[in-house]
Amino acid sequence: MDLNEKELIANLKSEASREQAFQLLVKTYQQRLYWHIRKIVLNHDDTDDILQNVFIKVWKNIEGFREDSSLFTWLFRIATNESLSHLQKQRRHSVVSINEINDYLSESIESDVYFDGDDIQKKFQLAILQLPNKQRIVFNMKYFDEMKYEEISEVLKTSVGALKASYHFAVKKIEEFLKEDSK
């Protein structure tokens, strides 16, 4: 944890400087968190809701933040958990099976007005969607966000070995999907 982060946390915990510090926190992390959530839930409106929920949770719970992990790790953990519980809720309310939720997410990509990718990128995103949720998150964090295994391990509270295995299987599955698709 660097000095700036320590100072930011101290300001967030102090009632006098909380609002200003919170604005700074939002400005600093909003984009990284947005893209992390967006890659999990895909849809912009859902991402916007979840991102707001994440920051509201931070606002409400900052006094209880124990500082045994970095602020960034804590934020990413909240964002990941919120995104996963959003997918679970969606599954409970509207769709029944994993295949159906994957179909729903695939449709989200197909119909998303905020998706600019070409056909290859669409295929790539659809291939990533075939992965189980947690494997998809590991893949996104490693591949797109280029996070270190140690950082991912802190966020997801999973061992580095398990993450390496997970990423390896994810890459294999994506390659297979793309191979099948190009046949």
Partner: peptide
């Protein structure tokens, strides 16, 4: 396929509405 996989690295096909990040803090 490997080439294709490699060439996609870091490219983000998603985008956000105009001024989304500029107005996010106020809406929050």
């Amino acid at each position: 396929i490997e080439n294709l996989f490699g060439s996609l690295k870091k490219e983000n096909p998603f985008r956000v509405p105009e001024n989304y990040f500029e107005t996010f803090a106020d809406r929050l």
